[in-house]
Amino acid sequence: MEITEKDVEHIAELARLELAAEEKKLYTGQLKSIFGWMEELNKADTASVPPTSNVLGAANPLREDKPFYFEDREAILKNAPGREYDFIKVKKVIE
């Protein structure tokens, strides 16, 4: 399978990862070799096989849609890199 540096740039953009030039080069080679190794999967016959997402086959448990208070709001806010009053600061997204 062919993976080019352009593919790597596209994937890095989707993943919101800034990569240095040498990283792009490194990952182009490594992803090529990892995906090459994964070609093995194509030999598995999965034509009529359903995918497994929960190994126990469990259904989503539901709870009442009821808000509750977190015991220590301050502890959460203290971790935020940017803060104003009781809000987390974010850069402007709409002009």
């Binding site: 999967l41 194509n42 598995a44 999965t46 096989v49 359903p50 995918p51 497994t52 997402s53």
Partner: peptide
């Protein structure tokens, strides 16, 4: 991804 999850069923 889907292929991997299907193969997972075979392994299970």
């Amino acid at each position: 991804y889907l292929k991997a999850q299907k193969t997972r069923t075979l392994i299970k």
